[in-house]
Simulated scan of single mutants.
Amino acid sequence: MGLHETPLMFDFERVSSEDLTYMPMSVRFNLDRFGLRISLAQWQLLPHADRALLARFPVDDDAQIEPNFDHALFEMMRTHANLEPDWFTPEHEPAWRDPATVPEGVLRHCREAGATGPSVERWGQLDPFKRYVLTKLTRKPEASHDFLPAMREFGLID
């Protein structure tokens, strides 16, 4: 699968990520699937064109489909920041991959927001990238300002 024509972003991200000052979820997904970590400050050291290119990479749930994201990131970081991303071992079976179980973090954030959590059936119907996004937005105990807008955009709440 090739690169998208434009940076891949959800509507709820446009305010905070449209100018690519902040990392869009597509970049976070690819960082996580390749086991790479960069800070926001390191992201912002990259030229806008490089950030836009990284945000165009596919978000398929198969690290073998597009293995050039990691190579591109390393080259960009070395060229523009004289740094390399940190490595970590990705989770073998992250919660978002399981279409039959809504992660507790997602349910907890729904309860705290006064919203009904998605049913297992509805959770399973979401594409894996959307499940990743909701799980990523609920990984911390405090509420993310993007969580409810993402739930709305994904058709899980009104």
Rank of each mutant, 00 (worst) to 15 (best):
64 Q>K: 13
75 E>N: 15
47 P>Y: 01
144 S>A: 11
157 I>D: 00
14 R>K: 13
10 F>R: 14
148 L>G: 01
52 A>M: 08
35 G>F: 07
34 F>C: 10
36 L>A: 06
74 F>Y: 10
110 C>H: 07
64 Q>E: 11
122 R>C: 04
31 L>Q: 11
145 H>C: 02
129 F>R: 10
153 E>Y: 15
74 F>K: 04
102 V>S: 14
143 A>P: 02
24 P>A: 07
85 P>R: 00
80 H>R: 03
123 W>P: 05
113 A>Q: 06
47 P>G: 04
104 E>R: 12
88 F>H: 15
124 G>D: 09
19 D>E: 09
46 L>W: 12
32 D>E: 14
78 R>T: 13
11 D>A: 15
143 A>L: 14
35 G>E: 08
22 Y>P: 00
106 V>C: 03
128 P>H: 09
21 T>G: 02
29 F>R: 09
16 S>K: 12
39 S>Q: 10
128 P>Q: 11
79 T>D: 05
109 H>Y: 04
90 P>V: 02
112 E>T: 04
105 G>A: 11
16 S>M: 03
62 D>L: 06
138 T>I: 01
98 D>M: 02
151 M>H: 10
103 P>W: 10
14 R>A: 06
142 E>I: 01
60 D>N: 14
60 D>A: 13
48 H>A: 05
14 R>H: 08
100 A>G: 09
38 I>P: 04
124 G>K: 04
9 M>Q: 11
132 Y>S: 07
118 P>T: 03
60 D>R: 14
18 E>I: 01
153 E>W: 15
134 L>S: 09
117 G>N: 07
93 E>Q: 14
67 P>I: 07
94 P>Q: 07
103 P>V: 09
147 F>V: 04
63 A>D: 01
2 G>H: 12
152 R>A: 04
93 E>L: 13
22 Y>M: 08
27 V>M: 02
23 M>T: 06
111 R>Y: 01
61 D>K: 03
27 V>Y: 02
25 M>I: 01
18 E>P: 00
113 A>F: 00
33 R>V: 10
141 P>C: 00
119 S>G: 12
78 R>K: 14
25 M>C: 11
15 V>N: 08
37 R>M: 10
127 D>I: 03
81 A>K: 00
105 G>Y: 08
72 A>K: 09
45 L>K: 14
49 A>F: 03
100 A>V: 02
69 F>M: 06
84 E>R: 00
96 W>I: 06
38 I>W: 06
94 P>A: 09
89 T>M: 08
109 H>K: 07
68 N>W: 10
116 T>V: 11
142 E>G: 01
45 L>A: 13
49 A>G: 06
80 H>I: 04
142 E>A: 10
52 A>G: 12
104 E>D: 12
120 V>A: 13
109 H>A: 06
75 E>W: 09
7 P>Y: 03
47 P>V: 01
152 R>V: 02
